[in-house]
Amino acid sequence: MDLSALRVEEVQNVINAMQKILECPICLELIKEPVSTKCDHIFCKFCMLKLLNQKKGPSQCPLCKNDITKRSLQESTRFSQLVEELLKIICAFQLDTGLE
């Protein structure tokens, strides 16, 4: 393996790690329209609304089981920016390397 191939692999590993961190624990995809709970867990807005609409009253956070309500959800613009920038990095990496 030459040096450039090694560096490509390192970049790919970093991108994969970042994708894992920014993954919704419910749908296991890159978070879309991130919302945070009072317990500071981040999920896709759609995933949380789907969870909350399944029953009346408070639901439980899928990660820590604390009570959550629609009102307690906060849009997470910082995470939204992180996801947007990661998508740009992924696109640039794919253009530069031809890898997916």
Rank of each mutant, 00 (worst) to 15 (best):
C44F: 01
K56E: 14
K88E: 04
C47S: 00
L30V: 13
L99V: 11
L87M: 06
V14I: 08
E23K: 06
K20Q: 15
P58T: 09
A17T: 06
T97K: 04
S76P: 02
I42K: 10
F79S: 02
C91W: 10
A5P: 10
D96N: 00
K32T: 04
P25S: 12
H41P: 00
S4A: 15
N66Y: 12
I90V: 09
R78S: 04
C24F: 00
K70Q: 07
E75P: 14
T69I: 08
F43I: 05
V35L: 08
E23D: 11
C27Y: 00
S36T: 13
Q81H: 13
E29P: 00
G98P: 06
N53T: 07
K38P: 07
E84D: 05
P58A: 13
P25L: 03
G98A: 03
M18I: 05
K32R: 07
C47F: 01
E33G: 10
E100D: 14
C91G: 10
L22P: 01
K50P: 06
E29G: 11
E84P: 03
C27S: 01
E10G: 11
I21T: 10
F43Y: 06
I89M: 15
F46I: 08
P25H: 05
C27G: 00
L99P: 09
S36C: 09
I15S: 00
I31F: 03
C44W: 02
F79C: 04
L87P: 03
Q60R: 12
E33Q: 10
F79V: 03
E10Q: 11
A5V: 10
C44P: 01
S80N: 07
K88P: 13
L3S: 15
N13K: 10
P62S: 13
H41Y: 01
C27W: 01
L6P: 14
L3F: 07
K56I: 10
D96P: 01
N13Y: 07
K88T: 08
P34T: 02
K88R: 08
Q54R: 15
G57E: 11
L63I: 15
C44G: 02
L22F: 08
A92P: 01
K56T: 09
E29D: 14
C24S: 00
E23V: 14
E9V: 04
K45I: 07
R71P: 15
E75V: 03
V14L: 13
K88I: 12
I31M: 03
T97S: 10
M18R: 00
N16H: 10
